[in-house]
Nucleic acid binder design. Structure first.
Lengths: 202, 202
DNA sequence: TTCAGGTAACTTACCGCAGGGTCATTTACC
DNA sequence: GGTAAATGACCCTGCGGTAAGTTACCTGAA
């Protein structure tokens, strides 16, 4: 970083600063939710003042969108790849969990942006969040459908409910993980494997 | 209601009005979270103006506390009763779920007050919420401990994580339920029984 | 070698508004 | 006329957002 600075330059180059801001923003939006997070507070964490955030991202929505896209894309890729590898329906949850833990190891709050209940339902920001959420739900429904069909349960609503609860389980695990900083992605995966085996025989 | 009004009286008697306000407050706090809910909006839903809320409950925190106590006490009782009935460890989750669904059938948002992430962690309000949450977690840990011991898993952290995820599952189920207004408490209990049987053989 | 001027990075000081909270007052019944 | 119920009008803080600079570095001409 910090090489090839050309014209007038004071302080940290834009690209690097933007990355810092997105990092702090993700933490803060994840912790306090969209409506609870404050732009001044994010700026303070970066060691900068508010107008710089507006110069770079335009608005609170703009910054949230930047954070959301980074998190959402990373997650979507991780889950898609894990599911593409295939395997027995009972093995998918663990595979997906492992991929998610690995992807978000250094950035655990990023997951929280995808299920922020304080988001406005309308506008560009609500639409983008809804888009990522529906993509995630689609994965969950595919997994749930396979799993349930293999056990002779086909009721539409049941599968819908299972998929919904599944994303809630992922959310709970990550929330718990956030409170256990010493726990690595590997620890989490091993813990989940152990529990599922004992609890469900999966 | 509305009987035995003694001295000077205009409009709805205090007790009745307070109940209305707590009802609307619970819905609104549950929907938007503590920080997202607005006192004017709650007043509007009751058909009254803001100062009346302050006259009866003192502050936003005061109203939230009133809502929280009603929800929390109802929940604690329901769960305590369900768990006191005993039974095989694998049957407890369903028993508890049934009790919760029945208790919150007419008041589904009430559950949400117990896991509000937008709550301030400090102050009377944070302490009260933490109190109810820890009581709920204690129940969950008892259940998880019994269940896991019966399967030869004793790791402290594993049990802690399971208990945490369990309350998350309840949360997900109720969130899903809120979006399915036609679904009764009985429907939900039956659905959960069906799923657990097929999925885990419980 | 120096220094004028250009530009990116960054800040100070402000605006408007929504939301929590309060006070004095009015309304309607006993 | 006493009292409970209820309101209109207000204050203040915090936050999203903006305008008008200021700072520090780079470049190129004298």
């Amino acid at each position: 970083m910090t090489e090839a600075r050309v014209a007038g330059t004071k302080g940290v180059p834009r690209e690097e600063r933007e990355a810092q801001i997105i990092g702090a923003g993700t933490r803060e939006f994840g912790r306090a939710g969209y409506s609870g997070a404050s732009m001044v507070e994010i700026a303070r964490q970066v060691g900068v003042t508010k107008p710089l955030l507006y110069q770079y991202f335009g608005s609170k929505d703009g910054l949230y969108l930047a954070c959301l896209h980074r998190s959402g894309d990373k997650l979507t890729e991780a889950v898609a790849e894990a599911m593409a590898r295939g395997g027995a329906p009972e093995r998918m949850p663990l595979a997906v969990l492992g991929a998610i833990f690995t992807a978000f190891d250094q950035d655990r709050y990023a997951w929280k942006l995808l299920r922020d209940e304080t988001l406005p339902k309308t506008g560009e920001i609500g639409a983008a969040a809804e888009d990522y959420r529906s993509r995630l739900d689609a994965f969950a429904e595919i997994g749930a459908t396979e799993l349930m069909h293999s056990r002779g349960l086909t009721a539409r609503k049941d599968i819908e409910a299972i998929a919904f609860v599944w994303t809630g389980v992922v959310d709970s695990l990550i929330t718990w993980w956030i409170e256990q900083p010493q726990e690595t992605a590997g620890d989490m995966a091993a813990r989940c494997a152990r529990i599922m085996e004992k609890l469900f025989g999966w």
